[in-house]
Simulated scan of single mutants.
Amino acid sequence: MSEARIWHGGDLDEARRLFPEAPEPWIDLSTGINPIPYPMPFLPASLFERLPSPAGHKDLEAAAAEAYGASDAATVVAAPGTQVLISLLPDLWTRSRVAILGPTYAEHAHAWHGAGHEVAEIGSTDGAGDADIVVVVNPNNPDGRMLRRGALLDIAGHLRQRGGWLVVDEAFADFAECETLAPVLPENVIVLRSFGKTYGLAGVRLGFAITADGFAEKLRKALGPWSVSGPAMEVGRRALRDRAWRRAALRARADDASRLDALLAPHSDRSPRGTILYRLMDSSRAPELFSHLGRHGIWIRRFQYDPRLLRFGLPGPEENWLRLERAFASFS
């Protein structure tokens, strides 16, 4: 497997390198992060001055259990971002056969391969064969493909018969019609949930694993003490319990996704797809459009494995929408 650099969204240094004459400020549409963030609460200085409280950490995990439908807060493990969990999990197994349903978020394969596991990308769950571990991103990044809960439970059941595990990355499940496994958690399943994408606070660095008690404790030991900062704990538990905000954000971002689809559709070879927080277009002119938007100071996500694909995050403020619409109007 190639050790080439994995392309990620959010790299405005790369945008400025490729398009040095582009107007500032850049509009970054290369991530799948809510562009209208949760309002930051007042954070007292003591949160920065003291070590994080164990009681606060437990309350954060309880808030996450409530938000994600987990039946027991003991099954929820808070971490400094889902990416940390993706990187950590492969170190907790001896060399195994890992099947990853793809194409998908490249860091999964990178992490398992880097830890010495035998990794195969599969195009459907039927291709898992005798894998010890199956990794599924649900809904998938970048195309939004979703597997129903029954299908995932079937996979988990087959794996359990031979001591295998299922890892389900639900990073974008909050704003999707996704049947999470959190409320019906089999003992050999690990569910990953992202905080920063839904709440527009990626810099807080907060994510969760939901898994059976025994493995949850193993994860906590691997993460070590004070794995989540005091400010992140405070922001996280307040936001996770604010169900009214999340409902309103879901409605507003769904409207934004429809508006973006209407803008992308005339330039796409098939209907845009993805999730509410990002839309994927497929076009034979994708490289031209990427360069055109870059010259207009608009950074979007392209993909190493398919140059026909471009992913657009939501523009957020109205002035960003207007700049994007003007840029598309001048594309010919």
Score class of each variant (00 low, 15 high):
residue 2 S to R: 15
residue 4 A to H: 11
residue 5 R to A: 13
residue 10 G to N: 04
residue 13 D to T: 14
residue 13 D to Q: 12
residue 18 L to E: 14
residue 20 P to E: 05
residue 22 A to N: 01
residue 23 P to D: 13
residue 24 E to F: 01
residue 24 E to W: 06
residue 25 P to S: 09
residue 25 P to D: 04
residue 26 W to C: 07
residue 27 I to S: 00
residue 27 I to N: 00
residue 29 L to Q: 06
residue 35 P to H: 02
residue 38 Y to V: 00
residue 39 P to E: 12
residue 39 P to L: 07
residue 40 M to S: 09
residue 42 F to V: 07
residue 43 L to M: 06
residue 44 P to V: 01
residue 45 A to W: 02
residue 45 A to T: 02
residue 47 L to C: 05
residue 48 F to G: 10
residue 50 R to V: 12
residue 52 P to R: 08
residue 53 S to V: 06
residue 56 G to F: 14
residue 62 A to E: 13
residue 64 A to W: 09
residue 71 S to C: 14
residue 72 D to F: 05
residue 77 V to I: 01
residue 77 V to A: 02
residue 80 P to Q: 02
residue 85 L to W: 03
residue 90 P to V: 03
residue 97 R to F: 10
residue 97 R to P: 03
residue 97 R to L: 15
residue 100 I to S: 03
residue 100 I to R: 03
residue 102 G to S: 09
residue 108 H to L: 10
residue 113 H to N: 14
residue 114 G to N: 05
residue 117 H to I: 07
residue 122 I to K: 01
residue 126 D to R: 13
residue 129 G to E: 09
residue 133 I to H: 02
residue 136 V to Q: 07
residue 137 V to S: 14
residue 140 N to K: 15
residue 140 N to T: 07
residue 146 M to V: 15
residue 151 A to R: 13
residue 151 A to G: 12
residue 154 D to I: 04
residue 156 A to I: 02
residue 159 L to D: 10
residue 166 L to E: 03
residue 168 V to W: 01
residue 175 F to K: 03
residue 177 E to C: 14
residue 177 E to W: 14
residue 178 C to E: 12
residue 179 E to C: 05
residue 184 V to L: 13
residue 190 I to W: 09
residue 196 G to A: 06
residue 203 G to N: 11
residue 204 V to Y: 00
residue 207 G to S: 03
residue 210 I to Q: 05
residue 212 A to R: 14
residue 214 G to C: 09
residue 216 A to R: 00
residue 216 A to F: 00
residue 218 K to H: 12
residue 219 L to H: 05
residue 219 L to R: 05
residue 220 R to M: 08
residue 222 A to E: 02
residue 223 L to D: 00
residue 228 V to S: 01
residue 228 V to A: 00
residue 229 S to I: 01
residue 230 G to Q: 06
residue 230 G to M: 11
residue 231 P to A: 09
residue 245 W to T: 00
residue 248 A to Q: 09
residue 249 A to N: 06
residue 250 L to I: 07
residue 257 A to R: 10
residue 260 L to D: 00
residue 262 A to G: 06
residue 264 L to C: 04
residue 265 A to E: 06
residue 265 A to L: 15
residue 265 A to D: 15
residue 269 D to G: 14
residue 270 R to V: 14
residue 273 R to A: 15
residue 275 T to G: 06
residue 277 L to M: 11
residue 277 L to H: 04
residue 283 S to E: 01
residue 286 A to N: 03
residue 286 A to M: 13
residue 289 L to T: 07
residue 300 I to G: 02
residue 302 R to S: 13
residue 305 Y to F: 15
residue 305 Y to W: 15
residue 306 D to Q: 04
residue 306 D to C: 04
residue 308 R to D: 08
residue 310 L to K: 04
residue 312 F to W: 08
residue 317 P to E: 15
residue 317 P to N: 09
residue 319 E to W: 05
residue 323 R to A: 08
residue 328 F to Q: 02
residue 331 F to Q: 08
